[in-house]
Every structure is written in structure tokens, then in C-alpha cells.
Write a protein that binds this DNA or RNA. Sequence first.
DNA 1: CGCCGCCAAAATGTGCACATTCATGCCAGT
DNA 2: ACTGGCATGAATGTGCACATTTTGGCGGCG
Lengths: 265, 265
Amino acid sequence: MNVHILAATRRRDCVRARPQRASKADPQTDAAIHDAIARAVMDGSLRAGTKLAEHRLAAIFGVSRERIRKVLHRLGAERRIDIIPNRGARVPQPTVDEVRQIYEAHRVLEAGVLLALADALDDAFLARLDAHLAEEHAAAARGDRSASVKLSGGFHLLLVDAIGNPELSRILRDLLSRSSVMVSVYEPANQSICAVDEHGAIVEALRARDVGRAIDLSGHHFLHVEQRLRLDYAADAATDLEAVFRPRLAGKPARATASKRGDRR
Amino acid sequence: MNVHILAATRRRDCVRARPQRASKADPQTDAAIHDAIARAVMDGSLRAGTKLAEHRLAAIFGVSRERIRKVLHRLGAERRIDIIPNRGARVPQPTVDEVRQIYEAHRVLEAGVLLALADALDDAFLARLDAHLAEEHAAAARGDRSASVKLSGGFHLLLVDAIGNPELSRILRDLLSRSSVMVSVYEPANQSICAVDEHGAIVEALRARDVGRAIDLSGHHFLHVEQRLRLDYAADAATDLEAVFRPRLAGKPARATASKRGDRR
DNA sequence: CGCCGCCAAAATGTGCACATTCATGCCAGT
DNA sequence: ACTGGCATGAATGTGCACATTTTGGCGGCG
């Protein structure tokens, strides 16, 4: 376990930390640190399960430990990292089931959004959707996975933003940002997270003012993602076996093999 | 302004603080303090705009200031109180528009919930809804407003919990708890926040497996609430005028009269 | 007479040092 | 040789003291 933690930590140091920038006397505002860590967690630069030690981060960012502490606790309150009392913070290691719940939640709520969207539909908005689809296509065409993931999320944000309710936008934005974490864990690298065509079909349904179909399509869209997650999980179970038994060798024996990730919170 | 704050603060002291309990050597766990403040904010014991001074709360709860500080920042992250850097924490003073947004969000999202609920509908669940309606009726009959508000929120929680997605439940629970704050500010005391009959109509639609009607009813239900809020606002505008000009007398001139509450965040 | 700028008090923010808790490795006992 | 308890060390949690910012009041100046 020692080895595992050290390896992961060292990886973090070189992937995200940019210590030289941090050690410049730049005061590094709270928000900047918050965003840096949140982004690193979300885009997968930090491996799931990585420990986020306070003094180490403090050294990396060149600020006091209390500062990091505050940020870490805030991230914990936002459910972006896991904090265990007296045991510190870790990059969350979502269960397949948790991931599924996030996607299901998104699916359920987006149905409501689409229903409400019926009133806000106008040509200008449809044109914006078309433009977005074009961008998605372009990114997919040149194989830019990072852009694809981002744009793919942006599509759903575009939908909810059209309602013009900041509160609503914030809720779905949170949901989306949390599901982004999981993409990096469970999604195979060669698949785009949302099929562009499925987005296109939703737009067509909206253009035809057929909200019912749009909802159906959106639902199936999310179900596809969920389903693919489960398949992927089964596919690389062999690889995962190693992760299953690693904790048992070093730490206290895990409570049960089957619940290896289920008893975190 | 001084007078206003002092009055509000004094009121807080006697309404919620229970200083004698706090000064008992009871260590008062973080969660307990968090809940105490959150509840006080939510149920209206604390007047909107009341300042939550750290050292004062520390004295009241009999803990160190840092403890309060942590809790306050957490409450701020949860959007349950407003925190302005270097200016401390205050009980939020929601704009009518913000309240409307919360209700609109709830309305939009609950439509999705009802759609998803179609799959989870069984007789046991309908029976539970009936039982809940009976409770609501009972509370309304004996004029127990506090119980009514609580049960009324519980109805919507019952709906979302039926889907069995904890993540979804958490999101709507948050939304509901935030709208509870506003009830105390804008709702007249003699009206129940959710008409029991409207809840009953939704249940009937569900029983008939007519999800479309249930969504319609739910939508109108929330629209009623929103509408009533606006009427109430217009009704006591005279009282509010005083609040409009008070900040200008004491503090820096407000940026604009119309945005008196809109520029808080 | 009114306005601008300064001063002091109070409240928040921050860093430091100490207390507490948890994990790991060692040693003794069976 | 293995299990159990114990000690040590590292990491987190907490309180205290100081720095910074804001606010309300006051005096001088235009």
C-alpha cells in the first residue's frame, strides 16, 4: 500500500502540480487552488484513491497548510473529494453503482428540463444547438477526445441554460462535473462519452417540437452511457482483480471483497 | 442599522441560542452546531439579514471561534447562508426572484421525477402516499402550520425517494430545504404552503397511471406557489420600502434602488 | 454648513504551535 | 511461526495570537 500511495503521489507531482510555478511568490488565491485541485480531480490527472495530504499540497502550492485545509474541506462539502475524519482527503473512487446513479439522476432531471424547454424553443436557440453540434462533429473528426468530452457536456449545459434559471443550471452543472470524474475512471479511451449522433437526434426532435421524442431520445442516450459503463466494468474485471486484493496485503483486511468500494462513505 | 442589527441579534439570542445549554460543558460536535444553525436559518427563527458573528456564536455554543468558522464556511458552501469575504456571514435575504427560481427549478425537476416514477409505481407506494395525505389533512385540520409545512415538503420527498436514487433524493432535498427558508420570509402565516388538495390530485393522477396529468398538476401546483409569492410581495411592498432605503442611510449608497437585494453575491 | 479624509475599534482572516488520532513496525508470548 | 498488544511516527484537528480589512465616528478644511 505504501508503494501504491507513493507511486500515485509522485505521479501527481509531475502531472499537475507545477511546483516551480507554485513556489514563485504568487499568493495563489483560495479560488485558484480550489479550481486547480477540482480540475485535476475531475479530468483524471489524479488517479482515483490518491491521497491528498495537506502538508504536501501546501508545499506544492506554496501556501500554508490551513489554506489547503480550508479548500480541501470545501471540496469535500461539494462531494468532489472524499474526506474521512482524522484520515485526510482522497480522490474519490466511485463505485460503478455510484456512477450509474449520477447518470440516472441526470437522465431523470434532463427529462424535466426538456419538458420545460418546450416554451423556450426559438430559432436562435436551435441555431446555437446546430453550431454546437458542428463543433462536436469537428472534434470527433479530428479525434480530439478531450475536446469531445468537454463539448459533449456542453451540449447538455446548453439545454438547461436555455431555460434561463441560474439555479437550475447550477444544479445540472454540478451533476455534470461530477460525472466527468467518472468518465476518466470507467470510460475506455477510444469511445467518446456521448455519441454526437444521439445529440443530433435530440436536436432534430426539438426542431420538430416533438418534446416527447426528445425526452425518449435523451433517456436512451443516458441509458446507453450507463449500459456501456457496466459492460466496460465487466470487460476489465480481470485488471481490477489486482486492485481488489491490493488493499488486503497492506492494510487491515477489507471488510468484504464484494464491497471493496461500497463502504467508503 | 446598528439598531436593526442589535435588535435582530438580541432576538436570535433568545429564540434559538439556548445559551444555558451551550455553556454546559457539552462539547457540541460540529454536526450539531451545523444542524442547529441550518435549522434556525431554515425555519425562520433567525430573521433574514441577521449577521452571524463568529465570536458571538462561539460564545453561545461554548466552543472556539474556529469551530464556528468552519461550520459557517460549510454552510456558505451549501448556499444556506451568505458569506461575504471580510464581512462575515449573514442569514440570506432571498430576492423574490431567487425564490421564484428555486420553485421553478423544483417544478422543472419534479416533472422529470414524475416521468421516471411511472416505472416505480406500485400499490404499496400509492398506499404510502395516501397515508401521507391523511397526515397532511390532519395537520391542516388542527391548524398546525409548522407540521403542515413539514409534511407538505415531505410529500415531494416521498415522490423522489420512490425512485430509489440517493443522489437524486439529495438534490431535491437540498432544493426543498432552501425553499423552506423562503417560506418564512414571503409566505403569509395563514396559508399552508402547499394545498393538500393539489397533492391529492397528483396522487389520483398517479393512481390512474396518467403521468402526463400528474406532471401538469404538479406544474400548476408549483406555479400557484410562485404566483402567490408574487402577490404577497406586491401586498407588503409598503413595508418593504423601509428596508429599501435603510441601507442607504447607514452604509455606502447602494448601487441602485431596483437591485437592492440583487447584488448580494 | 457640508464634505473629505483620517483614526480607532471591532470583526474577520491567517499562520503557528500543540493536542489528538491513526497507522505501521516491533517485540513478546503462546 | 503466528498472533496480539504496544510504542513510535506521521498526519490531522484545534486553539491561540497576530495581521488585515472594514466600519463608524471625529475633526479639519473648503
